[in-house]
Design a protein around this nucleic acid. Structure first.
Lengths: 221, 221
DNA sequence: CGACAAAGTTTGATGAGTCAAACTAGAGAG
DNA sequence: CTCTCTAGTTTGACTCATCAAACTTTGTCG
């Protein structure tokens, strides 16, 4: 198995590549995400390239090889199953489970992981609505559009939140906007860069486009 | 928090000190248990002494300070709660959980640990019958005598097995001698260094004194 | 006592992962 | 076309945990 450090780099490269249009990660961002200096990130990328886990050329972008992708998906599976377990079984607050899973994901063995999966009934998404890769590494499609992209008056169901930042998650939970919740998009004010949403049976919430972009929903007839 | 390596040394010193009449661990045994050379163990002991976790003098025995004991009990609590969880919640075979817990115990945070404790209903012993230290570090008394010390004909209840070796645990499970089981000690043959035991409703088992010394029981009327 | 084995210690080196700081490539502004 | 800024790279050093091998202590047995 890859070391803890290697796993963290792979996970970060995977995430950055997914959110970038070019499908490649930049060294500066990578270093920031992993929490090291750019020099450290550069030398680690060389090692990862030598191990055929990433594609890397001097001053070029960084991306995962097939082998690296497989490893990243495995880490993602561990991370998301652990998060699900922490929320479902141990009843921990979903705003803290990301950090906890970050530590545990490196220590859990395949045997324990599969037992966890069984115990949880083979869930397909984690508490944030992110898909859990299956044992073979296949990841379900991420569905839904950002709340800010709906028309005023749309009836929606929230399916996913795409940020693990504690403050954001607490905001979402406080206003009852967790995945699974039905809601109505009352207003989309392009000039004010803000929207108003009413989750079923709860108070109406206002939020800026920045936040609305991180809450994904699908239309509900 | 102490590093993973440090935690392993503390755990090993604690275990060795407990099983030694002098209450101190020897360097050779310590190195073997931790899985390093004696040179490595010596230098680590110096570091631990500098951190006031162990008492150590050149060519003298090694023992834990109060601070080291507290740390060791904390690790033991994590280890045993995790083992209990793996058996009780995830239904893993008790002969493998020791190794699994060994890895997870270093990654679990206080928040997750206490949630686990709550989920399990604050158990006082782990699946092997070993006491689980409470949050304050207090450890219950280990009760019971070795099976080999009973008189022939004693009706007993098995309370603990004091070895984590896979083959031994499988032997115990195969013959239904897990903690909690009621049994009768049929015969204690001092000359043959062997005993015969019949667990309630199961077949009679023979075992040498060596094995019998690792199965602890208490009298049952 | 003296010799020897076993236990313990020291030393020098290694690999992983990291940082700070000096340096280089490339892209956009004037 | 050059200047400058930013991203990226290189280098040298450091810490942690480790090993192999040379060396020292201690205790035991003849």
């Amino acid at each position: 198995m890859a070391s803890e450090a290697v796993e963290n780099y792979l996970k970060a490269i995977d995430a950055l590549a997914h959110e970038s249009p070019t499908g490649e990660a930049g060294m500066k961002r990578l270093a920031t995400v992993v929490g090291v200096t750019t020099g450290t990130a550069t030398s680690m990328c060389k090692k990862l390239a030598a191990a055929r886990l990433v594609k890397y050329e001097r001053f070029g972008g960084i991306s995962l090889t097939a082998k690296g992708q497989a490893a990243a998906r495995d880490i993602l599976r561990r991370h998301r199953l652990i998060e699900t377990f922490l929320v479902e079984t141990l009843k921990l607050d979903w705003s803290v489970v990301h950090a906890e899973a970050e530590r545990l994901e490196h220590a859990i063995s395949p045997v324990v992981l599969e037992a966890l999966d069984r115990h949880l009934g083979h869930p397909s998404v984690d508490p944030h609505g992110d898909p859990i890769p299956d044992g073979a590494g296949a990841v379900g499609e991420t569905s839904g559009r950002a709340l800010g992209e709906f028309e005023a008056g749309s009836r929606v169901r929230i399916v996913r939140v795409s940020d693990q930042e504690k403050g954001f998650l607490e905001f979402v939970a406080r206003h009852g906007l967790k995945p699974g919740t039905a809601a109505v998009v009352n207003q989309v004010d392009r000039a004010a860069q803000a929207i108003r949403v009413t989750p079923d049976g709860l108070a109406t919430v206002s939020m800026g486009f920045g936040v609305a972009a991180k809450i994904m929903a699908e239309s509900r007839g």
